[in-house]
Design a protein around this nucleic acid. Structure first.
Lengths: 128, 128
DNA sequence: TTAGTTACTTTAAAAATGCAAGTTATGAAT
DNA sequence: ATTCATAACTTGCATTTTTAAAGTAACTAA
């Protein structure tokens, strides 16, 4: 028997990438993971305020696509941490190019580094 | 008076980029332009078979976002050609990284170069 | 016992998408 | 002159997806 490629729309790498990541929210979850966020509530608390049901659905899809994995990091009560797989980490260049493009062509947008700094400052203030 | 940034969701460059490009079709139109396609019917004839109303809407949005421009290249009958602006051309690295990622992690997807070769061959066969 | 947190699920309404068919302008073929 | 064909869209309608809001389960701390 032949192994059937079975593409959703075409064999194009871009089209197939968009079938996984092509919406307004999925790459923001990947971004958050890239910035060190790990839990459901951390994703929910990001500036864009992703709806809860969308977040749950996207986490499932990212998992079944092999881009993230989930593990419980404590029992009683059980709590979960998500993390990027190698496949997920490999999306960094896509995100980086989006930041470069956005910074250059959309006024007043901030870079990942800037976001990281803001996050770090927030974290410090929370701790003190 | 202050100039108001007025972001749709946040100041994040990725979020703002996704507000423009974050769906399953928009970047395929950009890809087609990048591969040398110019007209409405050429976009429609691409492998993914974008619905006609979606294509019309996306072309309008890409225009008002300053990513593409439109011009009539002949009268009687009037025919239109779309082209990438500088802002649109600058999306090439995003597309390239998507191709690299797709090729590495989604089995049997083909690269832009491969697509270009296939297109060139098709063109040659049509001409002879 | 009451309030709070985490990680979701459910519900109903609103918006976007997909499919098919229709429109306008024109030129080419019979 | 009439029919056929093409380019570039538009319209109508059913289906799917998104959104906001509220609800649930399992705990912990006061």
């Amino acid at each position: 028997m032949k192994t059937k490629p079975e593409f959703k729309r075409s064999a194009c790498a871009i089209a197939n990438t968009l079938d996984i990541l092509g919406d307004k929210w999925t790459l923001l979850v990947v971004r958050d993971l890239y910035l060190g966020k790990k839990t459901y509530s951390e994703f929910q608390n990001s500036a864009e305020k992703i709806p809860s049901n969308i977040l749950a659905e996207r986490l499932k899809r990212l998992q079944s696509a092999g881009i993230i994995s989930k593990q419980s990091y404590q029992q009683r009560p059980v709590r979960y941490a998500y993390q990027l797989t190698e496949k997920g980490e490999a999306l960094a260049p896509v995100l980086k190019e989006m930041v470069i493009w956005g910074n250059k062509f959309i006024p007043d947008t901030i870079s990942m580094e800037r976001v990281e700094k803001l996050l770090a400052r927030q974290k410090r203030q929370k701790l003190t």
